[in-house]
Simulated assay, not measured.
Amino acid sequence: MLTLNPDQLGDAAQLRFESRLAALIAQGQPEAAAELESPEGRAMLRRQCRRAERYGLRTELELARYVITAWLMGPQFDEELPAMAEILNAPSLTPAQKAEAIERVASTVLEQLSQGRT
């Protein structure tokens, strides 16, 4: 009989989440698939998840929103964009509200950029 300890289960769950997250990003940017499946790409996903956790984001949805925003806006968007830093550091917002807000801001910025407006 195969027995897994909690750490092994956690590692397996993390790998599965990373695979799903990489596939989700690659749906929107197929050229990203190879990079995200590489060891360096997986390490980047883990780093971004750890950054998200510093802001209290814990659920898969919250982490995915953060990581996708980092993919689109840059890996240090949380420090380089004042509006994002303000949202993520706001004590009055729940983690779910923070994740939703950064997704909305990123979507709005990217939409405006694609239309040639800033």
Rank of each mutant, 00 (worst) to 15 (best):
M44C: 06
T59F: 02
R117C: 06
R47A: 07
P91V: 10
A85F: 07
V105H: 07
Q48V: 00
F77T: 01
A23S: 10
S38I: 05
Q97N: 09
A32M: 06
L45Y: 04
A64S: 13
L36Q: 04
G10Q: 09
N89A: 12
V109E: 08
P91W: 05
L63Q: 11
Q48S: 05
Q48M: 09
M44D: 09
F17Y: 11
L88F: 05
L57D: 00
A32F: 00
E86T: 15
G56W: 00
G56Q: 04
Q97R: 12
Q112A: 13
V67A: 06
I68V: 13
A99L: 02
P95Q: 01
S107I: 01
D78N: 06
L2E: 13
E100R: 12
E62A: 03
A85G: 15
L2F: 12
E53K: 11
R117A: 13
P30F: 04
S92Y: 08
P75R: 14
A99S: 09
L21W: 02
I102C: 00
E103D: 08
V67S: 02
E86C: 11
A22Y: 01
G41K: 00
R58L: 07
P6R: 09
E40S: 08
W71R: 04
A13F: 08
L2T: 13
L15A: 15
T69H: 02
V67T: 05
